[in-house]
Write a protein that binds this DNA or RNA. Structure first.
Lengths: 199, 199, 199, 199
DNA sequence: GTGTAATCGAGACGGTACGTCGAGTCTTGTG
DNA sequence: CACAAGACTCGACGTACCGTCTCGATTACAC
């Protein structure tokens, strides 16, 4: 994880928490307003009232900073997936929540930039998947496991492919923007996939 | 479309076809090797043995050039979708073909960059959708229409959402790269979606 | 010599002469006003209405640029030392002329900076001596040679040491600024050295 | 004078003498090895095993620190100029001693940097002249006064100009480095100037 | 043939942002 | 208090691309 608070507490001036928050806030605003590639580190430093060196001290690249900035915006509080009793209910709750968080502002192009960077820079890719992708996939995996236990779907279900179907559809609308990412769409997706899996 | 052949035929030195091809080839190679953002116009000009001005005379931006370069690589010859007699067969043929073309080399990060750019620059977005997205969605729409006519799926089927399910899953693996984009995966996706739609 | 006009004339956009002159003028003004170390390349570029890259294209360092800028200001037109018929007259004419050129504006600290840099960077040192030092020493050598031929001073005169006496005294006042560098001082120096050499 | 020992003795931790010496030693070594402008305060602090704040507590600028560092290296013990009985003897002793101290290591470029700084920053200039220049000029003045009293040279001798001739020649070789600063050169300079003044 | 006109290469141009470094200052905990 | 550690602001560094602009040199069609 990037931008850890100083581990070796004690000697030296401690890291400025106000600066950290100003940087993340400035990065968030500019990224959402103009898209990641159109935002310069100079502009972020300027808006945060902070020197560029302070940014580079804690985040090696603009993408890493964007990752942290998004993280604070998009991460839900509860890590535990809800248990509604049905596969459809669980999926709808999880994916609907994500959709609600992601839909309000133009996150699509920022996430697109991060996905693209993750595909180019292996180190960043690992970080991105560990922080953004895996936690959410793990939740869905758990939901599928419960559905299998309940007998809703077969034991042979390919969870990974099914997750790609679910999140793939949502990401497709998020990134391409050719059609709105509504809760109604989420439920349709959940219905088709659940039905397709036998539930 | 960009890079139209000289319309005002007649006076003046005609456009150099070798230069055009060298530019597209250089762009393709560099993009695939390093990712779009890591390729400079200078580098493309250099490798193509061409001056930067010649590139800018015909393509307004790097992304437009990338679009043309990809187009030559990824576009199938036949525009007509195959008719295998079943929804599953038609979808498998269409999506499998696209998968085969896209799988061999690292197209994911280049396409990701274009998708992200399309989400920021409206003009480019229109061009991108017109050239890359719509033709393929139209094919699937036609396939769904045939399936409805055959009675395989209901009249109320939401084709647009279904298309997002299909291409969304494929794009998800293409862009994220967390799992391989195999023909087997394509068929699983087709199976689940077709089953989910009632076929 | 730095900043030669493009040798390989022909292909490509030719170097901008207005830009070159604006850069030298801006460098001159700023250097004299604030001292070399207090002038940034950014400031020079700004005042010249030129991009930094254009400066770096032609001058590798600020010092090299300063050298060229000073050269245009301080170089006399005639390379030939005057022949007044006496050692004192020749020396007074040469050194007095240099003094007049150097005295009007605060050249001292700029020349000091170049001398210091010349002592640190061998490459620059060679350039500095070739362009600034040797031509003037050569003139004095010639004057001494004439004085020897006239019988004013002995054949055994150590010209190099004598030149150091003359220019050393002038540079001392120029760089230290503890006392004014007047024509009267020049003539006193010439008198003492000429007398000391036997003339 | 800079770096006064703590005046307000009593309260608080006393100034660390080891730290002061480590700083001066580190500054001396680095300055001589790389030239003043190429040495950073961070580097000095690092090599001295001291924090930057400690340096800035006692020296306001790098130049002031350099001045103190040089002072310890170059200052002779006896302030009283030797009395050899002749002008030539006195000058040779004084200037030869200075030459010997200055010649061993690359002091030229450091002194050049200080001279240049003195010409730009008035405050530093006063300090520099008071500590480095005036004591030595005063010695020579005294020597000239004795020579006048002895009748070796005329009462009208312009001591200030004569001092510039002597030290100017030495500084010229020290700073420019175009020829070695040997004792032989010193004696030649002394001979010519003494002869030129009538001795 | 002889214009006329648009192309081509080469490469310099004004800009903007990059990521780094040095200067001084400030804020901790420790001696 | 002084000190080490080290984070902070500020501003300059030299480089890399951007997209534009001159050049001289080609290459076609129209007359």
């Amino acid at each position: 994880m990037s931008a850890e608070p100083s581990i070796a507490r004690g000697r030296g001036r401690p890291r400025s928490e106000p600066a950290r928050q100003a940087i993340l806030a400035a990065a968030t605003e500019l990224m959402l307003a103009r898209g990641l590639s159109a935002v310069s580190m100079d502009a972020i430093a300027d808006r945060a009232g902070v020197s560029k060196a302070t940014i580079y001290r804690w985040w090696p690249t603009k993408e890493t900073l964007a990752l942290d900035a998004l993280y604070e915006q998009l991460t839900e509080l509860s890590a535990e997936p809800p248990d509604t009793g049905t596969l459809r209910g669980d999926l709808s709750a999880l994916l609907g929540g994500w959709t609600d968080r992601v839909r309000g502002r133009p996150y699509g192009r920022v996430i697109g930039a991060l996905v693209t960077e993750a595909a180019t820079d292996t180190t960043f890719g690992d970080l991105y998947r560990e922080r953004f992708v895996e936690p959410r996939r793990a939740q869905i995996r758990q939901v599928f496991a419960r559905a299998v236990a309940r007998g809703e779907i077969g034991v042979a279900t390919d969870s990974e492919a099914a997750i790609d179907l679910l999140y793939g559809a949502l990401y497709h609308r998020l990134l391409h923007g050719h059609a709105p990412l509504t809760r109604q769409f989420v439920d349709y997706v959940v219905d088709v996939v659940a039905a397709g899996l036998g539930a």
